[in-house]
């Protein structure tokens, strides 16, 4: 079912130069956008002392001004500080979730694809079970297990994400492991570590990077979706989905405030989709 094609040694498709340039340009654009958002997230607390939780009920729903470049929300909290905190939160979740899904997923995929046998079958059954469950449902159930806890969200996201790595890496490794190059390396007496580094990793790496940026996007979406339906993180956390729910009632008085978290989610996901380098589907 996975839409990712398996690059075969020897008849790898060579993209036309224009398509190649276009893919690289979109990757560059995505990386720049992501860096800009991350800079916003991490530089704001350095440059200003605005506290994302400090309320000022005398100055609620203020339009952007010199003191508050992005205005204030319904409790008079600085939108700039809150958006920065929310970006840090989302990117943090994405990074931690992706890493802790990619490492076991790739390891298991390599072992299953290379060694086969009972490990391959057991991991296959496990990944089938996870694939049969829509990801958000699993995250929701775990969020129910520990309401408002960041840990439950993080574990749920990692559990959903590892399957993709496992399946794709396993398929890639299975093809590569049967190739004459690896046969030759093995016959020449090179150990598994050398074979992994020189033969398998170059095959896997580009796929893993694509999966990582898609995974980061789905992690950000999952956290925001749960926050939005009020079963994710709890107020007063500055979280993008939660901010939308909180600000939705004020869409008439202060549409500019409501559109800020929406724009940030949109830009985060767009930048990661562009970064993945695949054509939009």
């Amino acid at each position: 079912m996975s839409p990712v094609s398996i690059p075969l040694k020897g008849r790898r498709m060579i993209p036309a130069p224009t398509a190649w340039a276009r893919a690289n340009r979109s990757r560059l654009l995505g990386a720049a956008l992501l860096l800009g958002l991350a800079a916003l997230g991490w530089l704001v607390p350095l440059l200003s002392d605005a506290d994302p939780a400090r309320q000022d009920l005398g100055r609620i729903l203020m339009p952007p001004s010199a003191g508050e470049p992005l205005g204030t929300d319904h409790l008079g909290r600085s939108m700039l500080a809150r958006l920065a905190a929310a970006i840090r939160l989302s990117l943090g979740f994405a990074a931690v979730g992706v890493v802790s899904a990619a490492v076991p997923g790739v390891l298991l995929g390599v072992l299953a694809g290379w060694r086969g046998g009972w490990l391959d079958r057991a991991a296959g059954v496990l990944s089938d079970a996870f694939l049969a469950l829509p990801g958000l449902l699993l995250v929701l159930l775990l969020a129910a297990l520990a309401p408002g806890s960041a840990w439950a969200l993080y574990v749920g996201i990692s559990l959903v994400l590892w399957v993709e790595y496992f399946r794709v890496v396993r398929a890639t490794v299975r093809v590569a492991a049967a190739s004459p190059q690896i046969e030759a390396s093995r016959l020449l007496g090179f150990g598994p570590l050398y074979i992994f580094r020189r033969h398998l990793w170059p095959e896997i790496a580009p796929v893993v990077l694509t999966l990582a940026s898609f995974g980061a996007a789905s992690a950000i979406l999952a956290v925001a979706a749960l926050g939005f339906v009020s079963v994710g993180l709890r107020p007063p956390a500055a979280e993008l989905g939660l901010m939308m729910t909180e600000l939705l009632p004020y869409h008439e008085e202060a549409p500019w405030i409501l559109f800020q978290p929406i724009a940030v989610v949109f830009l985060l996901v767009l930048s990661l989709n562009l970064l993945s380098g695949s054509r939009p589907r």
Binding site: L221, A224, A225, F228, V229, G241, M244, L248, L258, I262, V265, F266, V269, L270, N273, P280, R281
Partner: peptide, 15 residues
């Protein structure tokens, strides 16, 4: 299509 993919459903709904 690329823009719509980057908009989560709840954001699209809100809009």
């Amino acid at each position: 299509a690329a823009g719509l993919r980057a908009l989560p459903q709840f954001v699209l709904g809100v809009l």
